[in-house]
């Protein structure tokens, strides 16, 4: 990997983390003293992606805005890594008119056709539409690929298996990515999954499968490059599973009492680890790191400020956009 790429991906991870930390703070700020999930400027469920940044930045580094990404209920890291406007993302999270969905979607339902980005809040159900995007790309003779993301819990859902089979049978340009963060909300993979690695399940569909350990940005980048190149050159789909880390709860408000690994979580945080790696390589020093943080803070602040100043949707417009 080029050092310039390393630095770029590090900066993206800092941006994502800064965004998630800011949303975390903003989300809880007006839910005190009594915590009510529906209260405040950001109401509803909130699934933040801290700890999973390496997957998004390393996969998306192999993509262009012509490629499609379908993300999950925990989508911010992939949205930002694929190039979504922070302003319009933040405005959607705040439920404002300038949001990607004019406040109709919310943080689990982000759609940005300019970068072929979409989400599904339903486990594994983002896979089938990705097949259709890949099919459309192939039909048009374009080199674009579709990346479909789920968590490891979704690998036990029918949509997952149907999609792998169909994509393989039709040799569609898809890269299936599983973010294994160990926890399907509160259920550990040991209780839910019949195989040690979901990458093994690729064999059942006659496609390559690869598991990447340790949330390793550079290993993910290399594996994703192989998978994306294969898809672009007509070689069909690949299944990648990344062992990543859910740094925080499943959703904000999740006390995680079920989680015995909580004490060690901070030590597994991939961001300081990658920072140390860059320092060791001589790619980053104090100035570079401080610069990345400062720049990220400025961009996120601007996005939050844009969101907060965007109009609240008119109640009378609630029934608009059901049909075009």
């Amino acid at each position: 990997m080029e050092n310039s790429t390393r630095l770029d991906l590090y900066r993206q991870m800092v941006l994502i983390r800064t965004f998630e930390e800011t949303i975390l703070r903003e989300y809880h700020a007006d839910k005190a003293p009594i915590w009510d999930i529906g209260a405040g400027l950001i109401p509803g469920e909130m699934h933040l992606s801290a700890g999973q940044e390496p997957v998004a930045v390393a996969v998306c580094a192999n993509l262009t805005p012509d490629d499609a990404v379908t993300a999950t209920h925990r989508p911010h890291h992939f949205a930002i890594a694929h190039g979504m406007s922070l302003e319009r993302l933040a405005a959607e999270i705040y439920g404002r008119e300038d949001g990607l969905g004019r406040g109709r979607g919310g943080h689990m339902h982000l759609f940005d056709p300019s970068i072929h980005f979409s989400c599904s809040g339903i486990i594994a159900e983002g896979y089938p539409p990705a097949l259709g995007q890949a099919f459309a790309f192939k039909s048009k003779g374009s080199q674009a690929v579709a990346v479909a993301v789920t968590g490891e819990g979704a690998a036990n859902q029918g949509a997952f298996h149907e999609s792998l089979n169909l994509a393989a049978a039709w040799r569609l340009p898809v890269v299936f990515v599983i973010e294994d963060n160990d926890w399907a909300i509160s259920v550990p993979r040991s209780l839910s999954t019949s195989v040690a690695s979901n990458a093994e399940r690729a064999k059942a569909y006659g496609i390559p499968g690869e598991r990447i350990e340790d949330n390793s940005l550079e290993d993910i980048f290399a594996a994703a490059k192989r998978a994306v190149d294969r898809a672009r050159s007509g070689g069909g789909p690949t299944l990648l599973e990344v062992h990543t880390l859910r740094l925080w709860g499943h959703f904000e408000g999740d006390a995680q009492g079920y989680r015995p690994d909580l004490d060690g979580v901070a030590q597994r945080d991939p961001l300081p680890a990658y920072e140390m790696h860059l320092r060791a390589l001589g790619v980053a020093d104090d100035d570079v790191i401080k610069g990345a943080v400062t720049e990220a803070q400025a961009r996120v602040e601007a996005a939050i400020s844009f969101a907060k100043s965007s109009p609240i949707p008119e109640p009378s417009s609630a029934t608009r956009y059901v049909f075009s």
């Binding site: 995007q133 089979n165 169909l166």
Partner: peptide, 10 residues
Amino acid sequence: TAFIGLGTGA
């Protein structure tokens, strides 16, 4: 599930 979703994506 796969092919109706494929239709949507296409």
